[in-house]
């Protein structure tokens, strides 16, 4: 059976059609997919040489994105999220729901609504901070001379004169 192997010229359909039309391939020897293709051609037929589409790619943004950004800036604690669990909303989602309810249903000003909706998260944040940085216990152990601080490389210090000059410069500006 005659055929060609130029996969970069035309499509499989156009190549086979050419062979059939020229009589190089008999109708009985056509590929099995041929009539299926004719009945259901691809939605957009492309070949190797087809021009590059210049469809622009738009950005997907939502109105509440600003709110989300502010929430994450203020609440720097990300809890784990299960992507396949749709029943429990994430912390950010609950916050936005709360905020929307306050603004739209109770008619609150945006600033007040934000602080009110954020207050439970503020509490969580404080509790977490306490957990991570408990109030310092009394220091015991090191003598002042043996303490590692004293052994550390001495910091470069400005001489008194230089410091004075620097400060005066700053204040002049």
């Amino acid at each position: 059976m005659a055929s060609n192997r130029f996969e970069k010229i035309g499509t499989i359909y156009s190549r086979i059609t050419g062979l059939l039309r020229a009589g190089a391939t008999k109708w009985e020897n056509k590929p099995l997919w041929y009539n299926v293709y004719r009945a259901f051609p691809p939605l957009n037929e492309t070949s190797f040489g087809s021009p590059v589409p210049d469809t622009p790619i738009r950005n997907i943004f939502y109105a509440e994105d600003k709110l989300r950004a502010k929430f994450h800036k203020d609440y720097r604690m990300l809890s784990a999220v299960r992507l396949d669990d749709r029943s429990t909303p994430s912390e950010c989602q609950t916050f936005i729901q709360e905020y929307k309810a306050l603004v739209e249903e109770k008619g609150k000003a945006e600033k007040d609504a934000y602080s009110e909706a954020f207050s439970p998260f503020q509490k969580k944040l404080k509790a977490e901070m306490k957990k991570q940085h408990p109030p310092e216990a009394e220091e015991v152990g090191f003598d002042s001379e043996e303490s590692p601080r004293s052994e550390a490389a001495p910091q470069e210090r400005l001489s008194e004169k230089d410091a004075k000059e620097l400060y005066t410069d700053i204040f002049k500006k």
């Binding site: 192997r5 499509t11 499989i12 086979i16 492309t46």
Partner: peptide, 22 residues
């Protein structure tokens, strides 16, 4: 494509769909 076999292909955003028939 060379052997004129029809193809169906799952193409992600980093794939080239040109030689895939469907």
């Amino acid at each position: 494509a060379k052997m004129n076999i029809a193809t169906i292909g799952i193409v992600d955003t980093n794939c080239d769909p040109r030689l895939i028939t469907y």
